[in-house]
Design a protein around this nucleic acid. Structure first.
Lengths: 330, 330
DNA sequence: CTGTTAGCGCGTTCAT
DNA sequence: ATGAACGCGCTAACAG
């Protein structure tokens, strides 16, 4: 059985230091308002008693809890960890803590988390939200909100424009001689998915080649693998997948059907999270999730400080990273 | 500019419903203590005013904030996301929120985070802590603590016993005819690293083969890659790496030096996080980080409920997953 | 069953 | 420069 020290309070420190409670409070928040010697005496007493300011009480009194929330659809998706890490780092620079929420790709769960977070965070970052526009707007009315990869007018957002990279990808395939390609799509509620799909279509039509869409439902290895039948059925000679995970599944599925990549079929992923660890190394559209995480939190903290909400639309461009899963049609 | 609703309080609801504040409080926490009709009246008033209980105030009053903290060394390390996800899921089952902390493998940062979390969480899970025993004990004295992959007497802990799997790995290599192997180590402060290293040694000596250790400092792709020179210099014909990330780096480094795997050299990873996406598919020691996350949070919640601290030592065994980076010595 | 009264620990006027 | 007093929003102990 371990002894648990029960919180030493401001009053105990005050008594030990022979001053009023308010002085102790000041010693921690505005030391410049006290005489240096008083501050030192208080700090010494505090140290001796092992006093730690009570975050909760402070929050109740000031309304500022020094926390921000970050909600993502799936931590296990390699796209998010770097983003979370960067967000954390940025929050830490301002001594903010991060509440992490995982929605399991489920809008209901996301709503629930937002509700539970609201009230203990000063603001929220919603990454790749699966929520409806209405719900997001409703939440944004209640607390400062920054969106990642969701383009809603009037709400600060940082967007990873995979459109630019996808365009390069289609161009790349066209140059290699492919005349019919397929887009293996992701979650229908995903802004990125819509963006990539339309980028594929636009680029294809402007280059005069054919493009079809095949659904994969969830962004995962298995989804990609299961989509291979449909992909080959279209007669396409190349595919662009919603993300690297899906692409990896497609790669495996193709191997099972003895379709060689890039010999018989070219494949391009998105987000570039697996490039260095797959074989053959995956051609992919670069990912800027780290910057997105950093910028989103930075934006949020700005909002909190200025109490004003600017209509920011921060766009991060992407580009194609050519590796070994694409080749000329033979 | 968006309008932000400022909190409606319990008193306003009380007034609107024509009851005392405490009744409103009860309506939300112990409805069974009020007459059904009173509850309904209160709820209606609350609904009308858009009342939402203030989590912070409640926490201050009750001492229970319904949050637990989870601190990991590096979110970007694929070992952790599944653990975090499982922890989150388990916490959610009891309506707890998770504070996530990333220490960047830095003990000072870890200490700082623990301090910042304490006071707004009811308990803490420290995964693969880089802290000294003393610091951990000190923290455990202040709030309920559960450790993952750290074996400290008297503090509840869940351990992933990679020893069992590593033993199988060495055995596997010995059977394939390897007489000298090397262990590519991880962070010196890591409990798992010590465990794996000594498991390699013990197994090797009991099987009568040689084992050397080569340092890699951090568990990362680059570390592994940089260690290849030292690995080959030992004259070993097989290696077991601290984790899959390191192994992946080693794989790349070997390829650069035209050492073919598994033809010329056998390689085994740990944690099995990359197995399905590398080529050749990596032989690795299974990982049970998901269970570890789930169990740790579950343990913590138990502690919180019973206010008693049991000396639990929950061990998860591992085993070898043979894939394609190991082969008989030729 | 319901209202009254104290705090929870801290920040912040307002005096001194 | 420092202290006294009030309030943040809510829960809990104590009446009735």
């Amino acid at each position: 059985m371990i002894k648990r020290a029960k919180g030493v309070t401001i009053s105990q420190v005050a008594e030990a230091a022979g001053v009023a409670r308010s002085s102790v409070s000041r010693a921690f928040t505005r030391p410049d308002m006290l005489s240096p010697e008083t501050v030192e005496r208080i700090m010494k007493a505090a140290e001796a008693l092992g006093y730690v300011p009570n975050h909760t009480a402070r929050a109740l009194s000031t309304g500022r809890h020094g926390n921000v929330g970050l909600i993502v659809p799936d931590i296990a998706n390699p796209f998010f960890p770097p983003m979370i890490r960067a967000a954390q780092l940025e929050a830490d620079r301002s001594d903010f803590c991060i509440f992490l929420g995982n929605t399991e790709e489920n809008p209901k769960q996301e709503d629930k988390l937002v509700g539970r977070f609201a009230g203990q965070v000063e603001g929220l970052v919603l990454a790749s939200s699966r929520l409806s526009d209405e719900r997001i707007r409703a939440h944004a009315g209640k607390l400062p909100l920054v969106l990642i990869n969701r383009d809603l007018d009037g709400i600060p957002r940082v967007l990873i424009d995979s459109g630019s990279g996808v365009h390069e990808a289609v161009e790349h395939l066209a140059k290699l001689g492919h005349r019919k390609i397929v887009y293996v799509s992701g979650p229908s509620t995903s802004w990125s998915n819509k963006q990539r799909r339309s980028a594929v279509r636009a680029a294809a039509s402007s280059l005069g080649i054919e493009a079809e869409t095949v659904p994969a439902v969830l962004p995962s290895y298995n989804s990609g693998r299961n989509a291979v039948g449909a992909i080959l059925a279209t007669g396409a000679t190349a595919a662009i997948a919603f993300d690297d995970l899906t692409a990896q599944g497609v790669l495996a599925g193709l191997a099972e059907k003895h379709v060689s990549v890039p010999g018989d079929f070219s494949l391009i992923g998105c987000d570039d999270v697996l490039g260095a660890v797959t074989y053959p190394a995956l051609t992919s559209v670069s990912n800027r999730s780290m910057e997105a995480g950093r910028v989103a939190v930075s934006l949020l903290l700005d909002m909190l400080q200025s109490r004003a909400i600017r209509d920011v639309r921060y766009v991060l461009e992407t580009h194609l990273v050519v590796r070994n899963t694409t080749a000329a049609l033979r």
